[in-house]
Design a binder for these strands. Structure first.
Length: 721
DNA sequence: TTGTGGTGT
């Protein structure tokens, strides 16, 4: 152990942390965005002397002379807000093409757009005119008038389905590229390809320091020794963050939660004022640590002469918006705020006033295993880049301190330099379907910054073939493949929706998809409950809606009852249902219906709207047709019950267990199909429906009639070519 | 018989 537990007033006999070798200037990626209220406050106190201003001329020169500019910028340099404005004023949009700047998250996209619209010109400051944004469900731009468009990376990728050369744009700026989201990675590869066809296009990559050379080399097309022909260049912009002293433990820590607890107490006892941010891997551990602080409240405040208390708040995505807001409110003057957070505080939100960071060195990560086709959620070591990002959270408003609950040796020898990019650890079916729809036939030859493994590409091919998206030759099918690529959902759900038309249950399937997407968010269930302790009330609330067919039709029942109540708030509260999520489901239903009218019926404008309304009103009372449509997408997830109450999947022969939250958990029907699996202590399956085994052959003869091995052989050859 | 790092179309 690094050190013994400190009793109140006791002086530690052993120094827990090594003094830092040197102060390091650490930046926080500009990814740091705030919740809207915080942004509003920061806009009032806006500092006009942003570091980027000193680089304006250099930047404009670089963009003129080089086709790709990699801008390395520390926190608060202002690159996200200023660079598009410089380009606008320098005339880069004068020939009718706009500037687009991507962000990995919706909230940052809209907030930055609002800010730039205001900064640009007060008279023209209306959002949606010169400056606009494009995120799912919220388009606020005008193709004629908008010159600066902020968009999520996923949205720009979608735009490429209709505009593969991005002819609407003169300059494409990818921001926060170091986060390596799957959409940003694919955009990099596509932009490199477009640059070969469009010499006028300019690409700006905004990245953290560590990756700059990698991105420059990726985009550089000059193969000669003559540097004057280079096409890519790095521009470094200083940051505006404060130095953060890093402390490491002297010995490896065995129990990082215990160590985090003790370190907090030590900071509270010895250090000056300033809030503390603690990074732990899971929401469960956030709650665990909070309980610890709360149960020792009295002991903690007696650590200090002024009896200052700790004000401990949790932060993770499963909390409601209201609960999250508490994190951003300043603590009373007689309290020190301690935020116990998951990874969400690393990039997604910024909390003002943090002076101390405690980093356990771990995070929870979703990893897709191509061997089993399962997702694993496992706790693993963070990367050095991640550790630096966490430390940077302490230097936002004044010099700070970061306590790493691992040794310096561990930091350098055990942590990897960068985290594994999303594209190398997730299910690739969606990404490959999109690439093919954009016109990238040979995915193995696609220029990835970090290519995914051949095995995971092969798995994605198998999956896409099984659901008819691609042919035996690996070519995207016009129908249903192209239609599925156009639908904004996972391929299995898209296949189900396409099938729903044949089974005449479009309305029910749209409802199921909307409800599944709403429930997918961790912590979001349409039934009010926040912990396992409240599970009984959850069960009781759901009981009136449950049906023997399973969870999917139960979801339809809940939604239909909500509709029948006239979307009544009172109805929701009477049934223990969260109105916010039902509203979200309602919005999603309309959006899905509209996509379907566009994609399947080729309708736009008011014709699409009335078609969508029609799709949402045609009821089909036959449950089996709904289940057959679902099976068309999810037949790979069919399973048969075992004597011990577990299930064996028919494809792949894996052992899975019905998650206790399913309405079928105690019924154990013989044959089932599930929509979701998650590998926790066991492999749990959720959103389950009872099936008749003969439906499988009816729905997927190509898989259940043993033709599969020949196809697999063919792909092996395709991929090894 | 129990629970989820964070995103996105």
């Amino acid at each position: 152990m690094a050190k013994a537990f400190l009793k109140p007033g006791e002086v530690s006999s052993r120094k827990q942390f090594q003094e830092p070798n040197s102060s390091r200037l650490l930046g926080i990626g500009e990814s740091s965005y705030d919740y809207e209220s915080i942004i509003a406050a920061s806009m009032v106190a806006r500092n006009t002397s942003l570091p980027i201003h000193n680089y304006k001329e250099a930047l404009l020169y670089a963009v003129k002379e080089y086709r790709t500019v990699v801008v390395v910028g520390e926190t608060g340099s202002g690159k996200t807000t200023q660079i598009p404005q410089y380009l606008l004023k320098a005339g880069w949009t004068d020939h009718g093409r706009a500037i687009v700047c991507t962000q990995p998250r919706r909230i940052a996209t809209t907030a930055v757009a609002a800010r730039v619209a205001e900064e640009l010109d007060e008279s023209k400051g209306t959002l949606g005119e010169v400056v606009g944004f494009a995120v799912r469900f919220d388009n606020c731009w005008d193709s004629e008038r908008t010159k600066i468009l902020y968009a999520t990376d996923g949205t720009l990728l979608r735009m490429m389905l209709t505009d593969p050369l991005l002819l609407k744009f003169q300059v494409v700026m990818l921001d926060e590229v170091h986060e390596r989201t799957i959409a940003t990675d694919i955009l990099c590869g596509l932009l490199k390809k477009i640059q070969r066809l469009r010499s006028d296009l300019r690409v700006i990559i905004s990245s953290a320091t560590v990756d700059a050379e990698k991105f420059r080399d990726f985009f550089e097309t000059n193969v000669t020794e003559d540097c004057s022909s280079n096409t890519a260049i790095i521009l470094s912009v200083e940051g505006r963050s404060f130095p953060v002293d890093i402390y490491y433990t002297t010995y490896p820590v065995q129990d990082y939660l215990q160590a985090a607890y003790e370190t907090t107490l030590e900071i509270h006892r010895k250090q000056q004022d300033g809030d503390i941010l603690i990074f732990v891997p899971s929401s469960e551990q956030v709650d665990h640590l909070l309980e610890r602080f709360q149960s020792n409240e009295f002991q903690i405040c007696s650590l200090r002469k002024d009896r200052k208390r700790l004000c401990c708040v949790p932060l993770y995505s499963g909390l409601s918006y209201r609960e999250q807001l508490a994190t951003f409110q300043p603590a009373p003057s007689n309290e020190r705020k301690v935020v116990v957070s998951t990874n969400i505080a690393e990039t997604s939100v910024t909390i003002q006033g943090i002076v101390f960071v405690i980093d356990t060195g771990f995070c929870r990560m979703r990893v897709h295993s191509p061997e089993t086709g399962m997702d694993l959620l496992c706790i693993q070591s963070i990367s050095r880049a991640s550790a630096d990002q966490r430390a940077g959270r302490a230097g936002r408003s004044c010099p700070g301190k970061c306590y790493r609950l691992y040794t310096e040796d561990c930091y350098w020898k055990l942590l990897t330099e960068n985290s594994v990019p999303e594209i190398c650890r997730t299910n690739l079916a969606t990404a490959i379907l999109q690439l093919k729809a954009i016109g990238i036939e040979n995915v193995m030859n696609f220029s990835f910054i970090d290519p995914p493994s051949a095995k995971s590409v092969a798995t994605a091919f198998e999956v896409l073939y099984a659901i008819d998206a691609i042919t035996e030759d690996g070519v995207l099918s016009d129908f249903p493949g192209m239609v599925m690529a156009d639908l904004p959902m996972e391929p299995f759900l898209a296949r189900t929706l396409v099938a729903a038309k044949d089974f005449e249950c479009v309305r029910e399937i749209i409802t199921i998809i909307a409800m599944l997407q709403v429930e997918q968010v961790p912590g979001d269930s349409v039934f009010k409950y926040s912990s396992s302790r409240e599970h009984k009330s959850f069960e009781a609330a759901r009981k009136p809606f449950g049906v023997a067919e399973g969870d999917l039709l139960t979801l339809v029942n809940i939604y239909d009852a909500f509709e029948a109540s006239g979307h009544s708030m009172r109805w929701c509260s009477n049934h223990g249902i969260v109105p916010r999520l039902m509203k979200k489901a309602r919005l999603l239903r309309r959006s899905i219906a509209l996509s379907l009218s566009n994609v399947m019926y080729g309708l736009y404008g008011s014709a699409a709207l009335s078609k969508a309304d029609g799709l949402l009103s045609q009821k089909n009372p036959d449950p089996s047709s709904v289940i057959k449509a679902t099976l068309k997408g999810f037949f790979m997830n069919s399973a048969v019950v075992q004597p011990d109450g577990s299930y064996l999947t028919l494809v792949g022969k894996r052992s899975v267990t019905i998650h206790p939250s399913s309405v079928l958990a105690s019924r154990l029907p013989k044959y089932i199909v599930y929509c979701e699996s998650i590998h926790l202590k066991r492999i749990y399956i959720r959103n389950i429906t009872v099936i008749e085994p003969q439906w499988l052959i009816q729905v997927a003869p190509h898989v259940f009639e043993k033709r599969k091995s020949r196809i697999e052989e063919k792909w092996k050859n395709l991929i090894s070519e």
